[in-house]
Design a protein around this nucleic acid. Sequence first.
DNA 1: CTTGCAACTGACTCTTTGGTCAGTTATATC
DNA 2: GATATAACTGACCAAAGAGTCAGTTGCAAG
Lengths: 220, 220
Amino acid sequence: MTDDSSRRVPKFRRRAEARPDEVLDAALDLFIELGFTQTRVDDIAKRAGISKGAVYLYFPSKEAIMEALVRRAVVPIADSALEFFDLDQDPRLVITMVLKMAAHRLSDPKTTAIPRIVFREVKAFPQLAQMYRREVLDKVIPVVERLIARGIDQGYLRPVDPHLTVRSIVGPLVLHVAMAEIFGIMPEGGMHFDKLIENHLTILFDGLSAPPSAKQWSSS
Amino acid sequence: MTDDSSRRVPKFRRRAEARPDEVLDAALDLFIELGFTQTRVDDIAKRAGISKGAVYLYFPSKEAIMEALVRRAVVPIADSALEFFDLDQDPRLVITMVLKMAAHRLSDPKTTAIPRIVFREVKAFPQLAQMYRREVLDKVIPVVERLIARGIDQGYLRPVDPHLTVRSIVGPLVLHVAMAEIFGIMPEGGMHFDKLIENHLTILFDGLSAPPSAKQWSSS
DNA sequence: CTTGCAACTGACTCTTTGGTCAGTTATATC
DNA sequence: GATATAACTGACCAAAGAGTCAGTTGCAAG
């Protein structure tokens, strides 16, 4: 921990350079399954195929594992989300594409793993929520807001509040996942993300109200 | 603990009949603040103004406190929610009323306390989630679905999937609360529930798309 | 084969905390 | 005041689990 002399060439023999990642993978599974407090460091070690002592060669504490876990996952998320935004399209096309992509990704439990952990451990690790916010939400949300604002300017969308409208766009998808995750409430026969998105997009763009010819509705 | 003779009239002297509720109140605060595992029984006792031993006079274990806590809260929730549903109205009026009422209630952190606890402790206490589902969601959701189905039959609403549409109605509100709770993301100057609901209802009923005269959109 | 060292082990310590219980206090009744 | 007993206390115990470290193992270089 003290010297870093010239002879320390990085290609030196080493039985396992991949250990830290193996530990994080093991920890991820267990933190999802049991939560942070209920997971024993010994279990993480066992699952990673090493002893508890070895874990402490790579991480100074259990909390550090949690931190590293989220840090490792957090950066790629925003990047992969942002690549679908094209601000020069009809925003409805972009929203359609992005939601379909999101739904597809959410079919894989791995996608929701990190958010789930962050949600559950906010109180114990506020810095994780901050990190997630900074690295993911603060990057993605403004882009969506800009997309909406632009859509309004260009006459595609009615004049709505971009900030609040973000919630109307993604809220249903989040709730769909959350209800299934927490309460096991889902459509018969599966999550049917495609149907959810289709149903949601219809409402989102065209509204719930029956066409003009039907009984009217004036927003008070 | 063994006899129950005739002289045991229930009005007998007793210094505190309200103790169990006091313990639950204390536990609620602490479970929200710290989560179940991080909360010590001693802390619950202290906050309830008694000693740890006294807690065990009323509850056989720490887990039993958690269980009783949710059980106590869960029944009134559905009842108070259902009183606002009137199936013979224009469903848009009903939805508007209910969402405004919900938003008002959500301004009080107490309202979200139990759901937050249930959410955080699902893995450790699956029976809590089941209880919440049975006592709250399974009572409320079907009513909303019936409201939507009826609205479609009566020509107020377009033909959508009632089950999935529930998510489009309440998802945005849930996300609004969750984002504020977890990440501190909210509109400048406060939660502005009124504005959220207004913005959401506009979209929900009339859609995001600009009026017909503008550029068109055909749902593929 | 010998040597050197990074990688690793697992028994141990120390702290925390759920749960117990022998003893104390407060109150109602006579 | 005397007595019975419900209500309560807090010191104690035992289990669990985070973190430590003296010792062991296995690989690479000469």
